[in-house]
């Protein structure tokens, strides 16, 4: 209760600052009202109007940003194994090294299998490129395309922070989970809508449904096996994906060696694409 009131105070301070109101760290003076009085009035009004205490409202955007940070540092390097599993149990595995900087810069390179080794991808906001060593020059690709076969597409492999690409339309508590309905900020985002279930205590995703604008389910991501990667990164180490478009097929992403690391901006350029492996 105390923590939630504290959160509300901080939120009002934030809104006052945003609207140009004058405040100091101890008190807010708006039209001569004391901060404590404002809080009392707001609490009483909210209970009278909605019958629900105002401190129960959740800031969806902040929550989504928190989920993003709990998943990865803002700038990082990581290794992933991508596995496509067919209905008959046959598997294809890919090993991928990726680096990210800030909100919208991401680059990666396939390390295995031999047929895909050296293929590198780059994402700068909504721009994506693929470099194939044999072809020898980067080509523009779209987020819906797939650089490998199977259920994963480029947007899954080169995913940015959710808060960078989506607005929170609705957030609610469902038992031990938060349920967030997200809407893409632009038409350039691969999935127009996401339904995200997150663990309330850990603030980590449990399940994400990816939907089209019309609400058709494209795929579901299940976040599993929480692991301590060191450096304060504790997050699911496995993402399992299935899709009604690929009935019986499953894709699995296993994470390893996630660590915070800073890179120069020049790493995230077309000209640098053939050299991404040198960052390892």
């Amino acid at each position: 209760m105390r923590g939630e009131i504290q959160h509300l105070i901080l939120r009002i301070r934030f809104l006052a600052a945003k609207s140009g109101g004058v405040y100091n760290t101890k008190k807010i003076h708006l039209r001569g009202l004391d901060m404590r009085n404002i809080l009392r009035i707001l609490l009483v009004l909210s209970v009278l109007i909605t019958g629900v205490p105002a401190y129960a409202a959740i800031d969806g955007t902040q929550l989504l940003k928190q989920i993003d940070r709990n998943l990865n540092p803002e700038s990082y390097e990581m290794y992933r194994k991508l596995i496509n599993v067919e209905p008959n149990g046959r598997k294809m595995e890919y090993t991928f090294f990726s680096v990210k900087k800030g909100l919208d810069k991401l680059a990666g390179v396939f390390l295995a299998p031999a047929s895909d080794k050296g293929r590198s991808t780059l994402r700068l906001g909504d721009n994506m490129w693929l470099y194939i060593p044999n072809v020898g020059k980067p080509i523009r690709i779209t987020s819906l395309q797939s650089v490998i076969g199977g259920v994963f597409n480029n947007a899954d492999i080169l995913s940015l922070d959710y808060a960078a690409e989506y607005n929170v339309e609705k957030v609610e508590e469902k038992g031990n989970e938060y349920f967030l309905q997200l809407k893409a900020k632009t038409k350039m985002v691969a999935y127009d809508r996401l339904n995200l279930w997150a663990d309330k205590n850990k603030k980590l995703p449990v399940k994400i449904e990816c939907l089209t604008e019309a609400g058709m389910l494209i795929k579901t991501l299940y976040f599993k096996e929480i692991k301590d990667f060191g450096g304060g990164i504790v997050r699911p180490s496995v993402i399992e994906t299935d899709s009604p478009l690929y009935k019986g097929y499953k894709s699995i992403m296993i994470f390893a060696k996630i660590k915070q690391r800073d890179f120069k901006d020049e790493v995230f350029t077309l000209t640098f694409m053939p050299n991404i492996e040198s960052l390892r």
Binding site: Y79, K81, I83, N88, G89, R90, K91, E93, T95, F97, L111, A112, I252, I254, A256, K257
Partner: peptide, 13 residues
């Protein structure tokens, strides 16, 4: 290749 198992052995990377 149907019987191959998958694992993420860190020596691979």
């Amino acid at each position: 290749f149907a019987e191959e198992e998958y694992k993420f052995d860190l020596s691979e990377i």
